[in-house]
Amino acid sequence: MFPYLGLKASTKQSQIDERLQYHPQVFEFFTTEQDVTPSGLIHLRDMIEYVKAAGVSKIVIHHPMKFQGIHNEVAVDQTSHRDGYHFLMRSSEALIKLAIETDTQVLIHGGYNSPLSEILSNYSSIEAARKVVFSRLDYFQSIGGDHVMFENSISPLYDYGDPELENLVIEHRYRLCYDTSHGFIVLHGDNAKLQASMAHLHDQIVHYHFVDSMGKFHDSLELGKGAIDWSALKPVVNMNATNIFEINLKDQMNSQEMRNSYQYLKACWQTSV
């Protein structure tokens, strides 16, 4: 029942076992560059089956955030960053293929937070770079269908909260992951605008990253420890979606902050109108 106890872990079995003891209903794999090597993909497939065998049917694979220590940007320039571009495309294609074969989901970030100076060193304008992002997302959607979704960032290349971009997202009929902290940061901590953004994209959201924030920078706080008004979000969330709690952990072998966030949101929404 929504909200789900959704937990995230790497592909290390020790982390996975720590999460599984709490019987999550949704499980998200945080993958790295190593997880999309031939041996890494075999291990990832094994861990997907391991999680399924524990009774979890709702599984998401989070595309690697970095390549060679740099954010794995969808807008990576094909000419000046040839290796990064090939990694983006090969890893996305491989994970989408795996997701189709295992009936799971792949989450791809539409962007991260490359400095404007870096974006403009490769493209003539933000609009030109954004066109590249949407072209590549169109391709991933064409091969992934109902097995791929796209997450908002705090980059102007793919930031929910920007009405112009949201209208494009709706026009392209993307399946979406909405990260609440990213939206809140883009909107400078404005709760009313966050609610409006989530309501606007409601029908296309299939997954949430529930994360608190002070709305100033990427702080990934436990729910209730930031400035997001969680009670006010209940009427605007899509309860047909899945969710995880993507919180910074003090110890990767202890999912306490994620589980605390689940209990907080459940209690909050039980007392909300």
Rank of each mutant, 00 (worst) to 15 (best):
Q34A: 15
N122E: 15
D212I: 03
G161M: 06
A99V: 03
I143Q: 10
L95K: 01
R175G: 14
S142D: 07
T31P: 05
L176A: 05
Q256M: 11
S10G: 15
Q34F: 06
P38F: 05
F210H: 04
G69L: 10
H218L: 09
Q252S: 12
F245H: 04
H188I: 05
T37M: 08
E18T: 11
I108C: 02
S10M: 08
A99T: 07
K131F: 01
E118M: 12
G215L: 00
V60P: 07
R173Q: 15
T104E: 06
R259D: 10
N122M: 09
Y123C: 12
G224C: 04
V186K: 14
A94E: 12
N260D: 15
Y112N: 03
V51G: 06
H86P: 02
Y50E: 12
Q13N: 11
S57N: 15
H188L: 13
N191G: 10
G84Q: 09
V186A: 14
Y22C: 07
L5H: 02
L168G: 05
R19C: 14
L7K: 00
K97I: 03
L7H: 01
I70V: 15
Q13R: 14
H86M: 14
L5W: 02
N248L: 10
M65R: 07
Y50N: 13
S121Y: 08
F245T: 00
L176P: 10
L41Q: 06
L165A: 10
L221T: 05
H218T: 12
G189T: 10
K8G: 08
H172S: 13
M239W: 09
H23T: 14
Y85E: 04
L116F: 09
T242S: 14
R19L: 12
A94I: 04
G110T: 08
V51R: 04
A9T: 12
G215F: 01
D138F: 04
V211F: 00
A192P: 03
D77P: 11
C177G: 07
D251T: 01
A99F: 05
H63K: 09
L98T: 03
P64E: 11
G111N: 05
L176E: 08
M149K: 03
A99K: 02
M258P: 00
I205G: 03
H147L: 01
N122T: 11
L120Q: 08
Y158W: 07
S220G: 06
M198T: 14
E166K: 00
G84R: 05
R175E: 13
Q15W: 00
N167M: 13
Q68W: 00
H86G: 03
R90Q: 15
P24A: 11
Y4P: 00
I170Y: 08
A267S: 15
G84V: 07
D212S: 05
S114R: 13
A227L: 13
R19D: 09
L95H: 02
Y123F: 13
Y22H: 15
Q15S: 10
F134R: 08
D219R: 01
I205K: 02
F2M: 08
N152S: 06
I228F: 03
K216R: 13
S213I: 09
L5V: 05
N243V: 02
F184S: 03
G6L: 02
Y262I: 02
I96W: 04
S121M: 13
T104Y: 07
E222G: 02
T37A: 10
